[in-house]
Design a protein around this nucleic acid. Structure first.
Length: 611
RNA sequence: CGGGAUGUAGCGCAGCCUGGCUAGCGCACCUGCUUUGGGAGCAGGGGGUCGCGGGUUCGAAUCCCGCCAUCCCGACCA
């Protein structure tokens, strides 16, 4: 990505204000650091385990961590890189409070839509406040207060800020806390084309950013969830401890969050000549498996393919939607019987409503529903139950199904969509499986896990409308601004980088992220030539602008020093040991484990070339 | 929010079932001596509201009740 003149100045300023402290020396004899020999009991994922063991972070609260000196250096390196790339893209930094009044969030409905994940509190007067989970409302109001013309747009501004979410279950250390740092940007444009350009600029900036952070990523189509809005993509680091499940095509570059996967719609089948639907006795078959077994055990029910399978059946699942205003609405979902309804996918489609189970009491209040034998006849807004009925996209005109006949012990065979039944709409709620068909190329999909490290949204006009952000266009008419929002988990990125780079010995940082360029180790008898030689080398490295972590501790055995150096994960380890009598020191690459002896006089040039 | 497990020194753990001396071990820490290329040895030492609150008992780390926290699996979410 190219950088123009003006951004370069911004880059310089950012580097000056929070730069990587060229030439800094951290002496381990003085450093506030204690490494742990054992894994902390409560840490499960590698990044959490190693960051605690290596003395980078320490748990301070449920879902909250204290950064120790090494960790804080690493954190600031990540933050600096994020800032530099935002500035380079021409975005401007602002900073909001985290503690905010409720009113803007009431205007956007997020005070309620965000649910229990929002930290709410009151001041001494009983006024409601929140600890912001993201800042769409505040950015919108800020722009509204200052700008009023199309001439001022486009605009993209960002902040790097502590965010709060009352997670049901904080876990995995830095990967999911209740307090975390996020970079959030917002774009403001006059029209959809402008929004698309702003979105694309952020997308490009994120690609540059994550490349620079040495984070592997997959860009997947996503749902926008509680943020509202339409187009949305996630940057996922494909790492198994991640909590996001996504699919990717094994043949083309299609990738999507499971919630956003679109099922290819099959072609309709002509209705002419299809067999008529018939109601048949299927006693004691309330589940798909019992139904399929029964059909196969009775030859009079001839299957078109020779043998009945769950895929020949249609399963109708009833749930309730709880809308943000608290009202409950029953909803029927029809999916092929060989697939479960994925409640997460369903919820993503019907948001902001939540899914709650349809229980025995609900069945009693809907007497036309026969549990285990529910079928389209009773479903639908026009049906006898009046329950809205949504179906899987695979159920197209001409497809035939075995499904409930709305009588105990009876099913209907060859019930044909478009002839015998219809639905109120289509919904993507069936589970996604490995091997499913790619909607782009028809290849096979695979399922993988990832850590969400970035998320970009085209919000559209939701917030601008709710909060009245309008500007005059070139004709002097008021138009509502369209917005985008773009997040990067900064503190999470530290853990994600650790996850992407650690090995069996410890952390293994990319150089620009690492707390130092070199880890200088003294390995020799106290009083021997090693210490003075190491001190001299340390001074030279520092003078050359290299950041040095210097293990100058006394009375520490070489084994401990080596283990600590590997655990801490600085990319280059220099050992001043027994070779010093011949003027040699050992230079080891942390990642590859390669070590070479070289004349002490060559070290500065060697390491400088790596940086 | 459901199911399970756990909570004892900075970290890792034993003790609890079957209540009873001063609550113990390893690592880490302090002192001394030895050791110095892969988490050293010996000797001595400091450090504990046994998660919190209530109860039973002559007596509670141990038994009972409640709460909190942590981890795992679900549910939910950046």
């Amino acid at each position: 990505m190219g950088t123009q003149g003006a951004p370069r100045a911004a880059r310089y300023i950012a580097a000056m204000s929070s730069g990587p402290s060229a030439g800094a020396v951290l002496r381990m004899s003085k450093l506030f650091l204690r490494t742990l020999r054992d894994d902390p009991n409560d840490a499960e994922v590698p990044s959490h385990r190693l960051l605690v063991r290596a003395g980078y972070i320490r748990r301070a609260a449920p879902g909250g961590f204290t950064w120790l000196p090494l960790g804080w250096i690493v954190y600031r390196n990540v933050e600096r890189i994020v800032r530099e790339e935002m500035d380079a893209a021409g975005f401007q930094e602002v900073h909001f409070p985290a503690l905010l009044p409720k009113e803007p969030y009431e205007a956007s409905n997020r005070w309620t839509d965000y649910g229990d994940n929002l930290f709410r509190l009151q001041d001494r007067h009983g006024n409601d406040f929140l600890l912001a989970p993201t800042h769409e409302e505040m950015f919108t109001l800020l722009v509204k207060g200052l700008y009023s013309s199309y001439r001022d747009l486009p605009l993209s501004i960002y902040q790097i800020q502590t965010k709060y979410r009352d997670e049901a279950r904080p876990r995995a250390g830095l990967l999911r806390g209740r307090e975390f740092v996020m970079k959030d940007s917002y774009s403001f444009d006059i029209d959809d084309a402008g929004l698309q350009r702003s979105y694309d600029r952020h997308r490009e900036a994120y690609i540059t950013l994550f490349d620079r952070l040495h984070l592997p990523y997959v860009i997947v189509s996503a749902m926008s969830g509680a943020m509202g809005g339409s187009a949305s993509e996630e940057f996922l680091a494909p790492i198994d401890v991640g909590e996001d499940t996504f699919v990717r095509c094994t043949a083309c570059d299609y990738a999507a969050n499971t919630e956003a996967v679109r099922v290819p719609v099959p072609a309709a089948i002509p209705l002419d000549g299809l067999p008529a639907a018939q109601v048949v006795d299927t006693p004691n078959t309330p589940t798909i498996q019992t139904l399929v077994d029964h059909l196969n055990a009775h030859p009079e029910f001839a299957s078109p393919s020779g043998e009945w399978t769950a895929a020949d059946t249609m399963k109708n699942v009833i749930v309730k939607l709880r809308h943000p205003d608290g009202t409950l609405e029953p909803l029927a979902v029809g999916v092929p019987g060989d697939r479960e309804v994925d409640l997460k996918r369903l919820e993503a489609q019907v948001g902001p409503a939540e899914i709650v189970p349809f229980d025995e009491t609900d069945f009693k209040s809907h007497p036309t529903l026969v549990k285990g034998y529910i079928g389209p006849g009773t479903l639908g807004l026009e049906g006898s139950s009046g329950i809205r009925f949504l179906i899987d996209p695979r159920i197209v005109v001409g497809t035939r199904w075995v499904t409930g006949a709305n009588q105990p012990g009876k099913h209907v065979i060859d019930l044909t969509y478009g002839r015998d039944f219809t639905a109120d709409g289509v919904v993507e709620a069936a589970e996604v499986r490995a091997g499913d068909v790619c909607p782009d190329c028809g290849g096979a999909l695979e399922i993988a896990r990832g850590i969400e490290i970035g998320h970009i949204f085209q919000l559209g006009r939701k917030y601008a409308e709710a909060l009245g952000l309008q500007v005059t266009d070139e004709h002097g008419k008021l138009v509502t601004v369209t917005m985008g929002s773009y997040g990067v988990g900064v503190s999470r990125a530290v853990a994600a980088i650790a996850e992407a780079s650690f090995d069996g010995l410890g952390l293994c940082w990319p150089r620009e992220i690492a707390p130092a360029d070199v880890h200088l180790v003294i390995a020799g008898k106290e009083g021997g030539p090693q210490r003075p030689a190491a001190e001299a080398l340390c001074a030279e490295l520092s003078a050359a602008g290299l950041r040095v972590l210097f293990d100058d501790r006394e009375g520490v055995s070489p084994g401990v020093r080596f283990k600590d150096a590997e655990l801490v994960g600085v990319p280059t380890i220099i050992v001043v040991g027994r070779g010093i009598d011949d003027g040699l020191v050992e230079v080891k690459d942390r990642a590859s484990g390669e070590r070479v002896d070289m004349p002490v006089g060559d070290v500065v040039a060697h390491v400088s070339a790596l940086v």
